[in-house]
């Protein structure tokens, strides 16, 4: 395979990304599962696999763009990287505030207006070249601002950088919006169930905001799960939505019952926090109809097992929207 005019030896069954990383080339990538689109390259000669173009815009497909992590290297004779300016746009950080000790909210302002749906994601690329995906939590408005929720991961290079070194006024590159996990008003009258763990609540609150703004008529159940109370970082906001909208129900849960009672004392919200896993609670109560729309965001294992259980319980496959938060494998060697 020739990449950027240099020839590389390809191993059987490896992906283009694996091949280039094995040869110690510095190229952008993040999820390695064909979702984040940060490893996008352009094919000059070769047979691009269908799955390596899944989710790409028609214009990108026409130009031979493909996802390096999903493409067999053997099938590509010649490829090249795509000009940074074609993929990345710029934005400025205008506000940053803590939701909790390890979750913060970033408000960024793109230099040019962005057309997007709340619930889609963008890839941020920092000055060190690290790329990560973050979901958009707000709906488009005249101010043209984008709201992101960042979870500080243990050893998370990007999240630590965003927490500690990315300051108001700083610029950042971003790619997107990307993704199919968002609200459509044709589902206005249908019952909607949203299940999210951790900052999986970010795309979900975006979807809820979109639904409520569109005058959604069906019942909305919002299951937010976290490890502890601090992780239910939208508790007050979602409790208020629950009170102000008769068709919106907020159902919080925590998987570890460490400090439930003492923390609840200071919280005068009427919403009851249940102990257990949010997806298991939701599946237990599930009453699927042919119309039921399901959104699943956050921990990939939660997303994938819940998707299957919901499907087997009778929810139509086309009515299940997912956004698994794949985290980059920090180990240098392959699994």
């Amino acid at each position: 395979m020739i990449f950027n005019n240099i020839s590389y030896q390809v191993k059987k069954n490896e992906s283009v990304l694996e091949c280039l990383l094995r040869c110690e080339l510095k190229i952008d990538y993040s999820c390695k599962t064909g979702n984040c689109q940060s490893c996008l390259l352009k094919s000059i000669a070769g047979d691009v696999d269908k799955k390596a173009q899944k989710g790409l815009k028609p214009t990108a497909i026409e130009q031979g763009f493909f996802l390096a992590c999903q493409q067999q290297a053997e099938a590509i004779q010649k490829a090249e990287s795509i000009d940074n300016e074609l993929i990345f746009s710029h934005a400025r950080l205008v506000n940053k505030q803590l939701f909790s000790n390890d979750i913060c909210q970033l408000i960024i302002e793109p230099v040019s207006p962005l057309y997007y749906h709340a619930g889609q994601f963008i890839n941020l690329k920092n000055s060190q070249g690290i790329v990560r995906s973050y979901s958009i939590a707000n709906i488009p408005s005249e101010q043209q601002l984008i709201e992101l929720h960042i979870h500080k991961k243990t050893n998370g290079a990007m999240s630590h950088w965003l927490f500690n070194e990315f300051n108001v006024g700083d610029n950042i590159d971003f790619q997107g919006p990307i993704g199919e996990c968002f609200y459509t008003s044709e589902n206005k009258n249908k019952p909607m169930i949203l299940i999210g763990t951790g900052t999986g609540a970010a795309p979900l609150i975006g979807i809820v905001r979109d639904a409520l703004k569109s005058g959604h008529q069906g019942l909305i159940l919002f299951y937010h799960g976290a490890r502890n109370i601090e992780g239910l970082y939208l508790h007050d906001m979602l409790s208020n939505l629950d009170k102000s909208h008769s068709n919106f129900n907020y159902l919080p849960s925590i998987s570890h019952n460490d400090d439930l009672l003492s923390n609840l004392g200071s919280n005068d919200s009427a919403i009851k926090i249940v102990v257990g896993r949010c997806n298991e609670i939701a599946i237990k109560k599930l009453q699927p109809t042919p119309q039921t729309i399901l959104y699943l965001c956050g921990n990939p294992e939660m997303v994938n097992t819940t998707r299957k259980k919901a499907f087997l319980a009778g929810i139509a496959s086309k009515n299940i929207y997912i956004d698994p938060f794949e985290y980059k494998d920090l180990r240098k060697s392959e699994r």
């Binding site: 299957k308 499907f311 087997l312 009778g314 139509a316 496959s317």
Partner: peptide, 11 residues
Amino acid sequence: AVDIFYRKVLN
């Protein structure tokens, strides 16, 4: 057919 069929297979 696809949902009905795939559900049967997985079950």
